[in-house]
Design a protein around this nucleic acid. Structure first.
Lengths: 168, 168, 168, 168
DNA sequence: TTTT
DNA sequence: TTTT
């Protein structure tokens, strides 16, 4: 049982192609660098722009999809949570990192390099369409299915319930 | 593959105790009425209040938890999506309804009747603590106690991955 | 002082061109119909799609911008709040409506009719680029061009403050 | 005109009393440390807890309100955006920090030390209730008002508009 | 009524 | 119908 809400919502563009690695167990871990730009007027009335570069990480199936479909310049919606890490660098100095651990992704109509317009909303429960054997391990045992209650469209009154009255 | 984002985030108080029903298949469907109030100044400089009453629906395990722990007056965080329905009433007239289908819930430190401070964040994947087998009793056992600020930091490298490097 | 959070976040496509009207005081009120589609597997394992049509309303400057730049098919990010209204129709019957009152909008790389890729994030504080003085023409000038990933980092100390250390 | 969405939503508890400082210009800058805890099952089926400590910064009027009403243990809803900074420490080493710049806050029914149950939703446009002269400068010139269109409740049909048809 |  |  958790305590608290830790939610991040981003819409931005990738600064580079995604970087996908695989764990020994074969789980995909894809990282992207995502830019969001905001503007404000400073006290002299000049327009000031500022860009934040977010480090976003996708795990598992979402990592495979992100690695396959996103490209430098792609515009994407990401939902996830903040994770702060502290580690000791090779130089012996303590370092800190901040990542957004994605749990939902929606490709938007980006037209960056490698663009691939398309669209489609994926969450951690989605299965990737990876057809070929590509260059990555990929042998994965049965993935944990995350749907608690599968069901069907609901065109209906609202007072009695069937098992089809579901979340969609 | 979905297209689009449909997300609602609410923090409000219940106007009444939850209403839980069960489908023939045994799935819980809990409905609550949730108030959110906002204020603004009108053009005459007077404070104006306006309250929206949201119809929130919880399905499955989340429905059982909502029915068990929430009460009239409880303050709650809800995340979900909008669903619009059209149906024909008993009077033969077409009617429309708007519901927020919850997929995450966090009980906040409410103090309404039956208050039960408690706290705890549940999503559709959570398992309810329903002890009995029946189809709707309501005897609540001790609510999970409140920690104000538990913690501890997690030191870890970030460049190689094990299968434990997970979404959390 | 308000009580509660009432927040909606949508990414979807317009089903039609926006409808802009003006109040007697000259305030723009723009309405759009926004589609979001989700999918799930029903109990027979078939893909089921469901589309929600959201009624989104933009007031004031945001209403002018929405009316000027959005078109049928445009993909847009909208943030706002839920408002439920009850009124009596001309037929004397009580009716209910649900609207999302927008307070932020971001045009995404849509390619619908009249597409106009464009992009740009506006909130209620933004000033529209309406050049003319009239109360509703619609001749659109050149839309703001698209940058895929502009940036630059901002180096700065964080312990003492000047009046420039602002929210951005 | 901005590009992108950079939004953070947190519900958590303060690890310490807020720290409020004032710029030379008299603007309040309040910092808090906010805990959010999540749980998951590891691969051995054990419950694993993890707490993230978020650095949240409130500027201006919101900073005054946060400094006045929040306390160690308080439960709070915060909405804001991510800001990453890079600076050189006194030891000459480059350091990085991540802050959430708050633009909305809602005190929840917390009961931590100094509790102050209360509730109330404030955004950057809110005026603090600071009555006394306290220990802080505070001389501030005319604050920029952020409401574009003030108005009043709307109990009404939906086809014609008056200047009262407003955002609320 | 959109979109893929 | 809640809450402050």
């Amino acid at each position: 049982m958790a305590r608290g809400i830790n939610k991040v919502i981003l819409v931005g563009n990738l600064g580079n192609d995604p970087d996908t690695k695989y764990t020994q167990g074969g789980m995909a871990v894809t990282r992207i660098s995502l830019a969001t730009t905001s503007v404000r007027k400073d006290k002299d009335g000049n327009q000031q722009e500022r860009t934040e570069w977010h480090r976003v990480v996708f795990f598992g199936k979402l990592g495979e999809i992100a690695g396959e479909y996103l490209r430098k310049g792609s515009q994407v919606y990401v939902e996830g949570s903040l994770r702060y890490d502290k580690y000791t660098g090779q130089d012996g100095v303590e370092k800190y990192s901040t990542d957004i651990i994605a749990d939902e992704m929606q490709m938007l109509g980006g037209r960056g390099e490698g663009g691939g317009g398309g669209g489609g909303n994926y969450d951690r429960g989605s299965r990737p369409q990876r057809s070929g054997g590509g260059d990555a391990p990929q042998q994965r045992s049965a993935p944990p299915s995350r749907q608690s209650a599968p069901q069907q469209q609901r065109p209906a009154p609202m007072d009695d319930f069937s098992d089809d009255d579901i979340p969609f």
